[in-house]
């Protein structure tokens, strides 16, 4: 995703990643992987509850985590494209998202 970040930004798309990691853990990940897009921390599982993405007991010690999912929103905050994979090794490619981004008004 980082490699394609400029392409996304040029297309007017802001990339944001969300997990249940703490801000410190996310900062470590961002430093390690040289991510420059924002990583947000949903420690209280509020957003993933509202988005119905909670994977109960999916974490390594049985904690609730987020399932993988991607949503492309337009500038009004409406979902224009989404991907809820059924296999966590099967992830969206940047090309798929960019194709969907072309359809945005």
């Amino acid at each position: 995703m980082q490699k394609q970040l400029d392409t996304f930004n040029e297309a007017g798309i802001r990339v944001v990643a969300i997990s249940v990691d703490t801000p410190e853990e996310s900062r470590r990940l961002a430093q390690l992987a040289h991510y420059t897009f924002p990583l947000l921390s949903d420690q209280k599982r509020e957003a993933i509850n509202h988005y119905d993405l909670v994977h109960k007991g999916g974490g390594p010690s049985g904690e609730d985590i987020s399932r993988p999912a991607e949503f492309l929103l337009d500038s009004s905050g409406t979902v224009r494209w989404r991907m809820l994979t059924e296999n966590y090794w099967k992830r969206t490619t940047p090309e798929q998202v960019l194709a969907a981004a072309k359809e945005l008004p």
């Binding site: 996304f8 007017g12 802001r14 997990s19 990691d21 987020s66 993988p68 949503f71 492309l72 500038s75």
Partner: peptide, 15 residues
């Protein structure tokens, strides 16, 4: 430039 959209990526976490 005004944003056209936002891509929200939910991921399992780095642990």
């Amino acid at each position: 430039k005004p944003a056209k959209g936002v891509l929200l990526i939910f991921y399992r976490g780095y642990w």
